[in-house]
Amino acid sequence: AGDAATASHVMLRLEDIFPDSSSSSCETPPQDHEHAASSSSSSSSSHTRMTVVHRHGPCSHLSTADTQHRKPPPSHEDILAADQNRVKSIQHRVAATTSRAGKQPSFPTTSSSVKLPASSGLALGTGNYVATVGIGTPATRQTVVVDTGSDTTWVQCRPCVASCYAQREALFDPARSSTYSNVSCAAAACSDLDVRGCSAGHCLYGVQYGDGSFSVGFFAMDTLSLSSYDSIKGFKFGCGESNDGLFGEASGLLGLGRGKTSLPMQAYAKYGGVFSHCLPARPTSTGYLNFGPTSPPPATQTTPMLTTNGPTFYYVGMTGIHVAGRLLPIPPSVFSSSSSGGGGGGTIVDSGTVITRLPPAAYAALRSAFVAAMAARGYRRAAAAAALLDTCYDFSGMGGVVAIPKVVLLFQGGAYLDVDASGIMYAVRPPSQVCLGFAANDGDGD
């Protein structure tokens, strides 16, 4: 009882943590964009704050527009299946980077007509959070997936030479923007692309993933509006003419990775290479995406970014896990035995992956400790597994009150992430099927 406060999250109202989003309204409607001068005295950079919302929640433009003929949001099984595809995609890319054996798609090089590869792609599963930007002059609203796991921003473009999936907002039309231009093949920016081609002097980009999903089109420049007051002129992005994958009805993707084409890198001089996000706990709430330095809250924990591990991804070093206030007996080598070798595998922080993946030995220790701690609180596993989530509980008849053990992730430098109650369990069918929201990699070397 003495350590109950540090060992458990007590949830007085189960529905507060696992709401039925289909019957809820947006509690904190997205605010107009905020903008302020930086408080940093040593920099002339500014900061801008955007609203981040759950893609399928009532705060999203993608769910509040005309729904009469729209498809219902994906089930949790669909989301988890897509998430597994994304993780395979990331593992594929990491392996390809390590072995330098990544396969590159081919592009036409001299044709005067654009002939883009078009094939059915599997789901990318680009996570669940979106933000709205403006592109072009005048700016047209585009709601895009927030993705720290990739670099190149892209939106679907008219005339969709090959194919576009159905999106909620109007397609971006370059012909209607007075500031749009294609990047030429000779431009240095074209060389920054991981996958590029050339057609009639126009630079082509390709974003292709290990699972087969993709966006291909013209690499272009136009004004990117992050707020009513702040824009980036000459922002380079993909004008997608051939796109497929499970992007929902989003208009594209905002690439926030570490590569040269990412938004943080393109706007480095403006925002100092600093951005932050907060993802809301509930589909009915809003979070933020902030660019530029701001004063961090006093309780901020920091850990080194392991920049030598490879491009694009944000690697950090995980060192251990606490469950219910107790450090799990996981050897440090478990977190550093991946195939990338050298300084260790590291752990990627990815806004586009839904469920945290752990090395098998770490997950086994977490699951064992979590199940034991739940049993000590009177909960028995009584619900079926849901896709990759194998530890599920039935909270029916609990009177809406449950207490779950705390889970804390530990990182190099002493940083820790005391996972919010909403992040420890994933509600597949609340309250009858609520699962531990972690999963294992397939192998120790993944």
Binding site: V274, P280, P296, M305, Y314, A415, D420, Y426
Partner: peptide, 30 residues
Amino acid sequence: VGIVGNTQLKTFGVVYDLGKSMVGFSPGAC
């Protein structure tokens, strides 16, 4: 590699500082 996904990041402010090569976590940011 392991991956910290968005379910576990909920409510945290996650700051990425490319210049300082640092990632930060701020509890209760939203």
